[in-house]
Amino acid sequence: MTANHSTPGGALDIVVLGEQLSLLPQRAVLWRTRKMLIVADIHFGKAAAFRAGGIPVPHGTTRANLDALDVLIAAHEVRHIVFLGDFLHARTARAPATLMALQRWREHHPDMKLTLVRGNHDLHAGDPPAQLAVDVVDEPWQVGPLALCHHPQELTGAYVLAGHVHPVVRLAVGRDSLRLPCFVFGEKQATLPAFGAFTGGYEIRGGQDEQLFVCTDDRVFIYPRQV
């Protein structure tokens, strides 16, 4: 795996097994030659699930996720979106407003190919409604030299892109600190940050054989290795 300098739009290009991938500040991977956008852990309807449980969290997270997808589709001429698991957060995420927003978005992108690699939340929430026309596959789903998964794992003969962990890294200067989402690339697998707007994050330090790529609002940058 080799990394190149940031490109216009703040992306950072890397090469994995001969394939160039663009790490986007919006916490997604763009596989330009395939016009494929890869996102992990979007968790549609998570806020609705919390409200169903009596927790008064804000509305609008599903719309925010869909708007973020629209920005990337328009900017990069995306023709195929792959969701690396956890499409719907839970069965209670199937609120009418959530499903209606998803359906209207789908109607605006009738020719977009959508693929979901099932994750742990999908096992409980169930597959997306049939009218969304999402192809659903089990992990690992191999595309060229890459294996697209939900759970991080090592596979023979393929480089794994996965989600599930929601990795973030803590940056500190003096008494000030902040947590930022990051991509984690190792020798045989990579973990993507959560794409969803209401997902939280798991703080990591990175292993000796791992490289972290941190996302800010407008660019991705290489974070020093943790020893």
Rank of each mutant, 00 (worst) to 15 (best):
S6K: 13
V168Y: 11
T7R: 14
V137G: 01
T61W: 12
V15K: 15
G157N: 01
H5K: 15
E107M: 15
L23H: 08
V173W: 15
A162Y: 00
V220R: 04
A68N: 13
R118G: 05
H43Q: 04
R91S: 08
A190S: 14
V29T: 12
Q208A: 10
P193R: 06
D86Y: 14
R106I: 10
A3Y: 13
H89R: 13
R106F: 00
F198H: 06
A194D: 01
D70S: 06
R106E: 04
A11H: 10
P152Y: 00
L212S: 12
N4F: 15
P56E: 09
T199W: 04
R205K: 15
G163S: 06
L102D: 00
L132C: 05
A64V: 09
V143H: 05
F50P: 11
A52E: 14
A95K: 09
P128K: 07
Y159E: 01
V214F: 02
A190D: 04
D209T: 10
D13R: 12
A162V: 02
Q131H: 14
A95Q: 11
H151D: 11
G85V: 09
I55K: 14
H151G: 10
D135F: 09
G60S: 06
G200Q: 05
T7M: 10
N4S: 15
V143N: 01
L69A: 07
G9N: 03
V29N: 01
L21H: 06
L146F: 02
D111M: 11
Q131K: 12
L155F: 00
V15F: 09
R118H: 05
M100I: 15
R219S: 12
A101Q: 00
R51Q: 10
L178C: 14
V15D: 11
R79Y: 09
Q26T: 10
H80F: 03
L69N: 08
H124C: 11
R32I: 11
G45Y: 00
A47N: 11
L12F: 03
H124P: 13
T199F: 05
L171I: 06
E187F: 04
V214Y: 02
L116T: 13
I81P: 03
L84E: 00
C149M: 06
E77F: 15
G60M: 03
L132R: 04
L192A: 05
F183A: 13
D67K: 13
T216E: 14
G60K: 12
G163I: 07
V57F: 06
V214C: 07
K46D: 01
P58G: 13
R175E: 09
V227T: 09
G206P: 09
H80R: 12
A125V: 04
T92D: 07
S177L: 05
